[in-house]
Design a protein around this nucleic acid. Structure first.
Lengths: 120, 120
DNA sequence: AGAGCTTGACTAGAATTTCTAGGGGTGGCA
DNA sequence: TGCCACCCCTAGAAATTCTAGTCAAGCTCT
């Protein structure tokens, strides 16, 4: 499958949960679907590993941000669907706010270095 | 000292090194100075804990991105100064590229949700 | 019917980074 | 003298992600 490279890891720490919650706004979905949605949604810039996704899903459920149930996928296979709870929606709002702040703060610190023509 | 709240952690994972390297472009500096520079540079949105900074500095030196030497600070105290190495500059360029991509990818995935008037 | 591919869920263990919560030492000033 | 600001450091815990698998069932082709 040739992973893009290791550009992914590290920097998306803490953003996976946010992206999963965001994806579920569009409707219930199961793991496989969520991963593909995020990957395609990012123009394939991101790669979602199962080993990260499933623990994340379980984490989110444990905290009450999502609920789950067994169902049948489009491909007629048994699949566990996840649904965003009201608490999850609230959490998403909160995480989006934090992300906006972080991105802003980092932009401030990095300054010109981050701009397209940033001299380095 | 009343930390802002826990908004910091999590999401800036992997960005501390980048910000430290960026700060050193402006000239050699020691830990205390670097922390203050990042905090003030982010309009106090970020808080740099010593327990994160010093290990980061040692990590960067171990990898050859920075070199260090003992000196005397402006306040006339013994302090360990850090200097960006050529390899560190290269690393910074690489991390900046990764950050740009990450920010772009997340923007794509989040879509409207991230925009100022994002309906949620 | 059997082989093999695809979909789909899951987990143990390692790796990494950050935070918590401390411990020091020194210089300047009231 | 006492205290505060400056400055360095670390052990251990916490949290997330990745590596590298396992397992199962449906589909398709021969």
């Amino acid at each position: 499958m040739a992973k893009r490279d290791q550009s992914n890891n590290d920097m998306l720490k803490g953003t996976l949960d946010m992206m999963v919650l965001r994806t579920l706004i569009l409707g219930d979905a199961h793991g496989h679907t969520i991963a593909k949605a995020i990957e395609r949604g990012s123009d394939d810039l991101l790669e979602v590993e199962e080993g990260s996704l499933y623990p994340a899903l379980h984490r989110l459920e444990e905290r009450g941000w999502v609920s789950s149930y067994w169902g049948v996928s489009d491909a007629n296979r048994k699949a566990r669907f996840y649904r965003l709870t009201p608490a999850g929606k609230k959490q998403l709002r909160s995480e989006v706010g934090r992300w906006r702040q972080m991105a802003k703060a980092i932009g401030l610190v990095m300054g010109d270095v981050l701009k397209e023509g940033g001299e380095l």
